[in-house]
């Protein structure tokens, strides 16, 4: 990699990190955690920061805690850490399953939960699952702390609700209940490992009908978003063998072709097709999972 020259500073606390971001607010400043979103972007020549603030060493932001209702991931928790934590498949199987399919082993050893969400690559995997899980993004900045629901956090390609000198500190994900099924299914690009389409589903059912449904997709649009038409087709519906297919058919309702991503591997109309296929798979898998333990 041969980037343009940049200044590098290492933060020793979250407060200091925020101060540094403020101090360098006039320059093109980027945060470095695991580097597996930032560095490929710099390598490709698309990003050229003037200042890099390294937060990878901040213990305050590392680690995850599985509580009785919620699992909280520190922003700099690596994917590998997530997968090696006992109980994560029980508490939040959809998150664990997503992390499992991100990149490859080397990427998972370095990349972080917070970094992935803050970078908001349209084809990354975590955004969909945190949206479907109705997670909360904890943010800290010069004006203090605030919390944003995941479904409001992703605004557009590479654009989130984060303000200029703010950083993600943690992600709180509600645990999956016994009456819920949760999953993430993904069609991996054979070259990049990113999601050509990835669909996350959380469903709650009493066995006969669907009480609640949250579906979200990434890879399909320029940011992770809920598949509301498909959700509507599920809520209140009776659970049958056809339900997944019927509801998935609604995934592209109201979606204009120009809204779907278009690149050399997948054109926008095929992406619409993949979105339906993977929505069906996600719904079916979530239904099959209700009350069933998931393992690695």
């Amino acid at each position: 990699m041969f980037p343009n020259k940049f200044d590098y500073v290492r933060a020793t606390s979250v407060a200091e990190a925020i101060d540094l971001l403020e101090e360098y607010a006039d320059a093109d400043t980027e945060i470095l955690a695991g580097g597996h979103s930032l560095l490929p972007t710099i390598k490709s020549g698309l990003a050229s920061p003037e200042v890099v603030v390294d937060i990878s060493g901040l213990d305050e932001l590392a680690g995850l805690e599985i509580g009785p209702e919620t699992t909280t991931f520190g922003a700099t928790t690596t994917y590998a850490d997530v997968l090696h934590t006992d109980g994560v498949y029980d508490a939040v199987p959809d998150v664990a399953e997503t992390v499992e399919v991100i990149g490859d082993r080397q990427v998972r050893n370095a990349g972080t939960m917070g970094g992935n969400l803050a970078h908001a690559d349209p084809a990354s995997d975590l955004p969909a699952v945190v949206v479907a899980a109705d997670a909360t993004i904890q943010i800290q900045g010069p004006d203090g702390e605030r919390a944003v629901p995941a479904s409001e956090f992703f605004i557009a390609m590479y654009t989130t609700d984060l303000g200029p000198s703010e950083l993600i500190t943690a992600i709180e994900v509600p645990n999956v209940g016994d009456d819920e099924g949760a999953t993430y299914v993904k069609k991996k690009s054979p070259s990049s490992g990113y999601a050509m389409v990835g669909v996350a589903a959380r469903l709650r059912t009493d066995g006969d009908s669907i009480e609640a449904a949250r579906l979200a997709a990434n890879g399909a649009f320029d940011h992770a978003q809920r598949l509301e038409a498909a959700e509507d087709a599920l809520v209140g519906a009776t659970v049958t063998d056809d339900l997944a297919a019927t509801a998935a058919g609604a995934a592209t309702d109201g979606v204009e072709e120009w809204e779907l991503m278009d690149d050399i591997q997948v054109s926008s109309d095929f992406r619409g097709q993949l979105l339906e296929v993977y929505t069906e798979r996600a719904i079916q898998q979530a239904l099959d999972r209700v009350g069933v333990a998931v393992s690695a």
């Binding site: 490929p40 490709s44 690009s189 054979p190 070259s191 990049s192 050399i264 591997q265």
Partner: peptide, 16 residues
């Protein structure tokens, strides 16, 4: 050349 990097040009891996 749009498929100009290994991100975009899919060389098969062992799992493929």
């Amino acid at each position: 050349l749009l498929s100009g990097t290994l991100q975009d040009y899919a060389v098969p891996r062992a799992k493929h």
